[in-house]
C-alpha cells in the first residue's frame, strides 16, 4: 500500500514538473509562459511597459539577459530595482534569462511618445552629435542612429521619457549599472537640461 501511494505521489510530482517546465497546452514558448505569469503584471500584457516598469518588448536579447543577471546579483541597484526587481530576479536562472531575452526581442515595440515635444529637437542633437566641448559622447555611436542598440547595448528608441530620465539621473547620483563602464560616467557628464532633452527625444523614436 505504501509503495503504491509513494508511486502515485512521485508520478504526480513528475508530471506537474514536466508541464510547468516545457510547454503549456497552447504550446507557448518557455519565455512567453514565464513572462505571462511573472512579468506582465507590471510590464503589461504586451510588455510595452509604462513609466515605472520599462518596455521589454523589442529589447535586445543579450541586454535582457545581462540585466536580469545583474538584478539577481544586485549590481543594478537603483531604488525601483531594489524594491521591485531584486525579489523576482532571484528566481531567474541563466537559462530562463536566455529564454526571456529571446521572447522579448521577438516582440513588436511601440514608442512611448510621452516626452516633452518642445525638447525633442535639442535631444536629437545631443543624441546624434554629443558635445565634444563638454566631453559628452554621441549616443548614436553605440546605441545606433535610430536608438536600435547592438548586441548587449540596449535599444533605447521609444522608451518612456520618465524611465530614461530616471536612469540617467540615478547614474548621476551614484547608483550602479550592470557594467561599471561606460554609462554611469556618461550620465555624470549630462546636465539636467541635457537629460530632459535626450529622454524626451528618445520617447518619440520608433
Amino acid at each position: 500500500m505504501k509503495l503504491i501511494r509513494t508511486t502515485i505521489a512521485l508520478l504526480a510530482l513528475a508530471s506537474s514538473a514536466v508541464s510547468a517546465m516545457a510547454f503549456d497546452r497552447e504550446h507557448k514558448s518557455l519565455g512567453q509562459t514565464f513572462a505571462d505569469t511573472n512579468c506582465s503584471w507590471c510590464h503589461g500584457p504586451s510588455l510595452q511597459g509604462f513609466t515605472t516598469a520599462p518596455r521589454l518588448a523589442g529589447q535586445k536579447a543579450e541586454y535582457i539577459q545581462s540585466q536580469l543577471l545583474s538584478l539577481k546579483s544586485h549590481k543594478r541597484d537603483n531604488p525601483l530595482a531594489r524594491q521591485v526587481m531584486w525579489g523576482p530576479a532571484g528566481t531567474v536562472t541563466p537559462e530562463v534569462a536566455r529564454e526571456l531575452g529571446a521572447y522579448f526581442s521577438s516582440l513588436d515595440a511601440e514608442a512611448a511618445n510621452d516626452g516633452r515635444r518642445e525638447l525633442a529637437g535639442q535631444g536629437q542633437g545631443i543624441y546624434q552629435n554629443g558635445s565634444a566641448g563638454a566631453n559628452i559622447p554621441s549616443c548614436a555611436v553605440c546605441h545606433g542612429p535610430d536608438g536600435q542598440g547592438a548586441g548587449a547595448i540596449p535599444r533605447i528608441g521609444g522608451l518612456s521619457y520618465a524611465y530614461v530620465k530616471r536612469q540617467l539621473e540615478q547614474w548621476g547620483q551614484g547608483y550602479h549599472a550592470s557594467a561599471a563602464f561606460p554609462m554611469p560616467a556618461v550620465a555624470r557628464q549630462l546636465s539636467a537640461a541635457d537629460i530632459d532633452a535626450i529622454a524626451s527625444y528618445l520617447s518619440f523614436v520608433r
Binding site: 542598440g149 561606460p182 560616467a185
Partner: peptide, 24 residues
C-alpha cells in the same frame, strides 16, 4: 583625463575598440 574618459567611452577603457552600432 576628462578628454580621455570621453574617448574611451567608445574606444574602450584600454583603447581596445568596441563593437557598437558599427565597429569602433
Amino acid at each position: 583625463q576628462a578628454k580621455l574618459q570621453y574617448c574611451k567611452t567608445c574606444h574602450g577603457v584600454s583603447g581596445q575598440g568596441y563593437s557598437g552600432a558599427s565597429p569602433i
